[in-house]
């Protein structure tokens, strides 16, 4: 899929000799309208935008993202609204890749095929399904590929070498490396040096794959990981939304500022 927007983003950042910046926000946080505004504004600095489906039993997410998700659900976000946020975003930002992230029950209730079709129609570029690991995801991933949608495989420090090889073989344009044994939103408990060392080992298995690092990345830690192909920041952004709401400050401005600062640190 070398013509995918995701692939092209990595090509561009590689040429600029920097990692891609990937942001994660929750659709509908804190309202449908606001989350679209946030997305549009931060995409001026982010290379790839991940947009989360809020779920009320997220077994891999920590407090910050849970708070965002509960807030969004409380404000009435529905699956169809998530897709409409994507299609509206794409009207003005048609070349900015967008990755939807969620738990499998949402796909399951919607219906796998219908879900993929809807992704295709709204121009979703990629999918991350947190609780659908390899090899359980093989069939779904190949259905995605047929429709030109990137299915993003996750690997973690506990992934055995054998698994790594199989996962890489079945991966599409991007692989997501989870930096440590952790849910989202926890402090880095492994030194950046060690994370990069493990990262390089995985990268060495197939240099052509774009591998991003996520979990525990903040303004403080992002610079130390800049050797990666891409870096994902989620909880730090969700936390900023929460803070802005509490302080009654402009959410879009504050969130855009943090994304700009993150970007400046890895330029």
């Amino acid at each position: 899929m070398t013509n995918s927007l995701i692939w092209q983003s990595f090509k561009k950042t590689r040429n600029e000799n920097r990692p891609a910046l990937l942001t994660y926000t929750v659709a509908g946080d804190n309202t449908k309208k606001k989350s679209l505004e946030i997305l549009k504004s931060i995409s001026n600095h982010a290379d790839i935008c991940e947009l989360g489906f809020p779920h009320n039993t997220p077994i891999a997410d920590g407090g910050q993202i849970q708070t965002s998700a509960y807030r969004a659900i409380k404000n009435g976000i529905k699956i169809k609204n998530v897709f409409s946020i994507v299609s509206q975003f794409k009207k003005t930002k048609k070349n900015k890749p967008i990755i939807l992230m969620g738990y499998y029950n949402i796909v399951y209730q919607y219906g796998e095929n219908k879900f993929i079709q809807k992704c295709k129609k709204t121009k979703v570029d990629g999918l991350i399904i947190v609780d659908l690991p390899h090899p359980e995801n093989k069939l779904f991933a190949s259905k995605c590929k047929k429709k030109g949608i990137n299915f993003i495989q996750l690997v973690s420090p506990t992934t055995s070498n054998n698994r790594l090889k199989q996962i890489i073989k079945d991966s599409h344009d991007m692989i997501y490396y989870i930096s440590m044994l952790s849910i989202t939103g926890q402090k880095l408990k492994v030194s950046p040096k060690n994370i990069i060392r493990r990262y390089n080992k995985i990268k060495a298995l197939d240099k052509s794959k774009n591998i991003v690092i996520g979990f525990g990345i903040t303004e403080k830690t992002i610079k130390s990981l800049k050797k990666a192909d891409g870096l994902v920041v989620g909880s730090a952004i969700c936390k900023e939304i929460t803070k802005s709401i509490i302080k009654r400050q402009n959410i879009v401005t504050n969130v855009t500022n943090i994304v700009r600062r993150l970007k400046n640190k890895i330029k």
Partner: peptide, 21 residues
């Protein structure tokens, strides 16, 4: 093989980190 009873109940829908443990 994938852990499903009656082909559809059960399984292991888990984050990658838990695969190994």
């Amino acid at each position: 093989k994938l852990g499903f009873w009656g082909g559809k109940f059960g399984g292991s829908f888990i984050p990658e980190t838990l695969k190994k443990p």
